[in-house]
Design a protein around this nucleic acid. Sequence first.
RNA 1: GGUGGGAUGGCUGAGUGGACGAAAGCGGCGGUCUUGAAAACCGUUGUGGCGCAAGUCACCGUGGGUUCGAAUCCUACUCCCACCGCCA
Length: 434
Amino acid sequence: MLDLKYIRENTDTVRKMLTDRQTEADLDKLIDLDTRWRENVTNTQVLRARQNEVSQEIAQLKKEKQDAMETIAKMRDLSQDIKERTAKANKDKVDIDAILLTIPNIPEASTPFGTGEADNIEIKTWGDKPSFDFELKPHWEIAETLDIVDFQRGAKVAGSNFVVFKGLGARLERALIQFMLDLHTTQHGYTEISPPFLANRPAMTGTGQIPKLEADMYRCDRDEENPDTDLFLIPTAEVPVTNLFAGEILSADDLPIYYTAYTPCFRREAGAYGKDTRGLQRIHQFDKVEMVKFTTPETSYAEHETLLENAERVLQVLELPYRVVQHCTVELSFAAAKCYDIEVWAPAGEKFLEVSSCSNFEAFQARRANIRYRPEAGAKPEFIHTLNASGTALPRVVIALLETYQNPDGTVRVPAVLQPYMGGLKLIGFGCDS
RNA sequence: GGUGGGAUGGCUGAGUGGACGAAAGCGGCGGUCUUGAAAACCGUUGUGGCGCAAGUCACCGUGGGUUCGAAUCCUACUCCCACCGCCA
């Protein structure tokens, strides 16, 4: 979230941001509440000071064995008054915080203004789109023919848009996970994390999924009395990994911290029904390797660029052409200040598919999750900056692999870098399931 | 699932309703001493809110309550530890 003080002093900037993002938030109410709250706090404080003072006097009287009944009686009204004012202030503060949680991050200066996907800016392209001298099959057809993905039975056990990877399909998933984790840990300096696949409400709020995207998540273990103990299936490893340091004060020597994690991701895709539902493009459960960085404010934008490089490297090594686009204002996700998408080329569908979102959240998540660091010993704690990028989401990489490396006979070549992870296998053919 | 114990500053750990934002120790920082370091000694050292500031207020797991006054009493909850049962 944004700093309340910042909003107070830069209300116009915040208002413009909301317009640019085409988002609604109750900014006027926030300002009103804030004004009232501060006035109330200031007044109550004076009364409290008086109360503390007299309490000392009472203690003194008692110590001297004098009668304090009269003084105590006088304090009763004051005490009640303070209680009522405090209750009102607390209520306003709760309302203020609730609104604060709905205000998105301010886009970083380089973010282009835009009103739709078309206004995203293509930053670069890598690799040449391959050409073929035979008719390409879409990935779902290849997968079904090779019997490596079962689209029907996934729906039977869980529901539509759940899939089952089978035989070499399952092996391919495992190989990709292993390959990506190895790449990031041995080449890019990340520490591997295997986090919980469920996260509670405060964690979901910390990274910004709640309140805005609550309906997009699977919730289990609901407890009306204790909402903080509600558990959600994670929509991304970003949630448990970023929240690892929630409420902590790190030392400057600890930073930057680079973590990478494989997790399945669960998304209800509420409101996305009927959109790209064929095949592996939009499924409710998918595998992903994520990278998360914790940095100082000074270095976060340099770290953002290397983070992007680390994610790009996955596709480069797999020799899959891609492009990088920068989000425009309206496409930028709630918590992000700046975001690049990496989109892999899917030749059969002749389109680019998003396989990684590479975001700098600046202090937005850190402020929500209260993650701070001490710039130097004895200095005041400051919020750190958090960043993350998929490195990468698997199903769409599988789409690109199947479509790019398909042969006319329906078999699929295994990219060189994955062969060691596939037991030396060079070709996904028919009738071999290991 | 059952029983018992616990939650206090960066860490360990005291704390009888008014002396407690909190003992003591460790650690950190600054200094004295030293060619340098160690040791020793001295000093200093939590977080946040409101306020231009002086200052002031809050915070002892979280939320309620009792009281003129709560780290301390009551209550609900959360988490942690130990043992028993069950289980991958």
